[in-house]
Design a binder for these strands. Structure first.
Lengths: 343, 343
DNA sequence: CTGTTAGCGCATTCAT
DNA sequence: ATGAATGCGCTAACAG
């Protein structure tokens, strides 16, 4: 009833008007003090600051972003938080901290399930007010022209939308296959990834291209679906490696798959790399600590996250950025690949 | 100039008034349709929905949260996005998805650096408006009573604030040490963690307690600082294991440290577990794939994240939750521990 | 130097 | 069934 002299409504967050009332000044004056604007008497400023401190007041991100044009917050939109998106997040986080930006990672409702268009809806929900720019992780639909700068990481679609960044899936796959060919392998199998993802398709394309260049005929029977997953790959590999004319090497579309192949080989009593060479893709943490350690193509996920953030900052500064950035995938030779048997 | 019949201002996000104008209805009508309120004619509703679809309109989280009391968004506040917080995030993410909540992970400015009180400021910035409840990851200061429900994960402070959740660091450390004692070890070293973290202190306490129970005198020379990090631990272990009276077992405060000890042992030509037993804590992914695989105390990080979210949902539903939840740390025996030499 | 007025985009009474 | 007015917390422009 009588809010006339209430100093601090302890139930609930203190608002700017609570501060103004307690300090005996108007709301805009508090706003000026808090935002460090000039034109406030030192004595007034001091008094306001004291009240701010006492009440633990902090400007509401929501309210100020509604009124302001810029919020100093970068959004990173993901379908859900899992291993892949989370690595990118780590990289983006350190880059954002260095640049003095705040980071807001968001996973909207239903984005985890098959809901198409989650990226568009999430963007609409946050853009224009809350965040100054957005990084969208593996969007599956085309992102329309938006009011705020956007960078897409590893999109599943073609060009046409915002600037994108990914690693050289095609070139990496070629390098992987070539590495096996250089070791004398001729019967090289491919454990491919989820065919609805562009990266998986590119890796398969690179494999075929490299085979072709070396004059090795493509054999459909040597391509199996591992779905980017360990268990599925292990199962598929078990079949593959039980054949009489089994391959001497396997290029797995990602490390998770490669670990599955390793597992299957172990169960069948095949020695790696003496009897079978295995190469993966991604260089996830588990790759370096498997038995034997996995030869793979390192995809710098944290770097990608950090670069995406850098590109966004360029965009925010009004600079141009390339429409497509591709980071190299680097061959890391460890213990799972060796000369073809009989050489 | 003439916005009189502009159907969709393509530059920029569509707002509710854009939709209203294009559909030929008033703003409140659109609001009702979008929020599924009753009192709108089917024909009108259909027309509005079509425009919404065409314009790709989605309610602004900012604007609606300012007006509404509830947003269906859970906040998870972290100092920065690194391995630890990110594992929690994964767990919270899947739990939030199941419950139909959106997740908003936020890392404020200066939180990565030593800035104290980041959690209080982040909370003030988001609470009351943007998010319905918050999970705060490893807060270092006491969280004051707030307007919204809060759960703290692995706080570095004592009780008194919001409900907390962590794993049984003390009990886990005892179990780890006891495991080594059961194997006949008497000279057991401890590679301790960052001493400013409560978890590190508790793990060291558990180690000492267990030693005491077994009648093994505590030896300060057997406790080294690994800082929870691989490199630092490797260096410290190299010194420790070079001594004439080196220990036969090491309890490392976390897996990263344990991997460092493994590395040092390998370089010194010590066989694990024949010459030296090593046990870690956490059970990070790398633990199961190291050589040899690491015996460790599994700390269910993803579960902790998921449980924190569950508790928050309880709080939001008006139910009581325990002021402190401790998840068990489970002994996972792998290949890095064995009988003490000479037994 | 300070207070008044206006409006960001939306949801909610209350009229009509 | 629909629209006009009001306010959420805050800041930008202006008036005093």
């Amino acid at each position: 009833m009588s809010a006339i002299d209430a100093p601090a409504p302890s139930p609930g967050r203190a608002t700017i008007s609570d501060v103004a009332r307690a300090a005996g000044v108007s709301v805009p004056t508090v706003s000026k003090v808090v935002n460090g604007r000039y034109g406030v008497a030192p004595a007034t400023s001091k008094r306001v600051m004291e009240v701010v401190e006492a009440l633990g007041y902090e400007t509401s991100l929501v309210a100020s972003s509604l009124r302001r044009q810029s919020t100093n917050v970068i959004g990173i939109l993901v379908a859900e938080f899992e291993s892949f998106s989370v690595e990118l997040l780590k990289g983006a986080s350190s880059a954002a901290a260095k640049a003095g930006y705040e980071l807001l990672a968001y996973s909207g409702r239903g984005a985890g399930n098959g809901q198409v268009g989650w990226e568009r809806r999430s963007l609409s929900r946050l853009a224009g007010t809350l965040i100054d720019g957005a990084i969208i992780v593996t969007p599956t639909v085309l992102i329309p022209t938006t009011s705020i700068p956007v960078i897409a990481i590893d999109p599943h679609t073609g060009n046409g939308g915002p600037s994108t960044i990914d690693s050289d899936n095609f070139g990496g796959a070629r390098a992987a296959t070539q590495h096996l060919i250089d070791l004398g392998h001729r019967r090289i199998a491919h454990m491919r990834g989820r065919s609805d993802l562009a990266s998986a398709q590119l890796r398969e394309d690179g494999y075929r291209e490299s085979l072709g260049e070396a004059g090795i005929p493509f054999d459909q029977a040597l391509v199996l679906d591992g779905g980017y997953q360990t268990a599925q790959s292990a199962q598929a590999a078990e079949d593959l490696l039980s054949r009489a004319d089994r391959p001497t090497a396997v290029f797995a579309a990602n490390d998770m798959s490669a670990l599955g192949v390793l597992q299957a080989a172990r169960e069948l009593g095949l020695r790696v790399p003496e009897d079978l060479s295995v190469i993966g893709f991604d260089d996830i943490p588990e790759a370096s600590t498997s038995t034997p350690p996995l030869t793979t193509l390192a995809q710098p996920l944290q770097d990608i996250g950090a670069q995406a953030l850098q590109m966004l900052l360029e965009l925010l500064a009004g600079h141009e950025v390339p429409s497509r950035v591709r980071l190299p995938a680097e061959l890391i030779v460890r213990g799972s690949t060796g000369p073809a048997p009989g050489r």
